[in-house]
């Protein structure tokens, strides 16, 4: 599914909406998540999942072709962790195997 298909489905299921409104609703959702992450905030949508920003420390990397050492600066990467309900839906029919101490894994 793509963003435009998501917009089309939303519009089809809500015939009272203008097509433009369906587009703005979907657009607003992702724009707000992007803005929050750009501000270093986290977005938590219970049952669906949480978007966070993780810091990657500066390190010395290597150019894989030449083997030359290159400094890689500290950077931030967007991260999504699926919520329990979504994780279970995706894995439906194949119950997730938990560790014996009951803690859910990644």
């Amino acid at each position: 599914m793509t963003k435009s298909e998501l917009i089309a489905e939303l519009a089809a299921a809500n015939p009272h909406l203008l097509a433009r409104d369906a587009e703005r609703i979907v657009g607003t959702v992702f724009e707000e998540i992007i803005t929050a992450l750009a501000n270093g905030d986290r977005v938590e949508l219970r049952g669906f999942g949480a978007f966070t920003v993780k810091r990657r420390n500066a390190r010395t990397g290597r150019n894989p072709r030449t083997g030359e050492a290159v400094a890689v600066e500290e950077k931030f990467v967007p991260f999504f962790k699926a919520g329990k309900e979504l994780r279970e839906r995706v894995n439906r029919g194949r119950p997730a195997q938990r560790l014996a101490d009951g803690r859910a894994r990644g």
């Binding site: 963003k3 939303l10 909406l17 609703i25 959702v29 992007i34 995706v90």
Partner: peptide, 24 residues
């Protein structure tokens, strides 16, 4: 409608599809 967006996304993923959101 926010809930509708999230549940459609979840339904697509549940089917095993990938969900491509351009710019995101």
């Amino acid at each position: 409608l926010l809930e509708a967006v999230l549940s459609r996304m979840a339904a697509s993923l549940e089917k095993g599809e990938s969900l491509k959101i351009s710019g995101f």
